[in-house]
Structure formats: C-alpha cells, structure tokens
Simulated assay, not measured.
Amino acid sequence: MKKTIGGIGAGLKAVAKSLVTPATRFQVGDNPLLCPICRHDEFDRREMLMNTSGMSFMNMDWLNSSACALVCQKCKHIELFAETPSERSV
C-alpha cells in the first residue's frame, strides 16, 4: 500500500512539474512585463483554475475557467491574467 501511495505521489509531482514552463520574459501590448514588487522580468507560467463555490459544491471544479498565472522568479509574487501575455525575446 505504501508503494502504491508513493508511486501516486511521485506521479502527481511529475504532472505538476510538467505544467510549469521554464522562466520566460513576457509583454503586455508593447510594454515589457515587470514584477510590481521587485521589478524582475522573468516569470514561470502556470495554468490555474478559477474555482467557484457552486462548482466546488457539485464536485465539478474541472468545468471552471482557467487563468494564466505568472510567478516571478525572484520574489515568487503571482500575477493572474485572463489570457496569456505574449512572450518577448531577450
């Protein structure tokens, strides 16, 4: 039983890592995106579900909308976007 639970845990960690992209620079329109806290310009991108109490109550969280979460590489501040900002070249 312990091996099964350990295997499931390892699988979940692998899935979580696969959902995170390497550090990238982004822009919104023509403006480079900077962290509002530390002014760093590299972020990890993740997809996050925007859970609602109604869908959670009915055990249907998977039907909720998702958002793009950019996590600052330096201070770990999280910014949410309805649509993924454009990547910019260095």
Rank of each mutant, 00 (worst) to 15 (best):
K3E: 00
E47H: 09
K17Q: 14
C68Y: 03
S53H: 10
G11R: 06
H77Y: 12
F26Y: 09
E79I: 05
C35E: 02
I37L: 11
K13S: 11
L12D: 03
S86N: 13
V28R: 14
L49D: 03
E87S: 14
G6N: 11
K13R: 11
L12V: 12
H77N: 08
L70G: 02
M58T: 04
T84N: 03
M50C: 10
D30V: 05
L12I: 15
R46Y: 02
L33K: 01
M60W: 10
G9D: 03
C38G: 07
I5R: 10
H77E: 07
S65R: 10
I37V: 09
C72A: 15
I78G: 03
V20M: 02
M48N: 02
A16L: 14
T21W: 06
K17E: 07
I8T: 10
A67E: 08
L70R: 12
K2V: 00
C35W: 02
L70K: 04
H77K: 13
L19E: 15
T52K: 06
L80F: 13
T84C: 06
E42S: 06
A23T: 02
G9A: 14
K3W: 00
L33G: 00
N31F: 12
E79Q: 13
R45T: 04
V15Q: 10
S65V: 11
G9W: 05
K17L: 15
N64R: 08
A16C: 04
L49H: 05
L19T: 05
F26H: 00
C38E: 09
H40P: 06
C35H: 02
G9V: 01
G11K: 09
D44L: 12
D30P: 01
T21F: 09
F81C: 02
S86M: 13
L63T: 07
G9Q: 06
G6A: 05
C35Q: 06
D44G: 09
E83I: 13
D61R: 05
R45E: 12
L33D: 01
C75M: 11
F57N: 15
R39D: 15
D61G: 14
P22C: 08
D61C: 08
A16N: 07
A67P: 01
S89A: 10
A69C: 04
K76D: 01
K13Y: 06
K3H: 00
C38W: 13
C75D: 15
E87C: 09
M55G: 09
W62N: 08
S65M: 07
K2N: 03
C72E: 07
K76I: 06
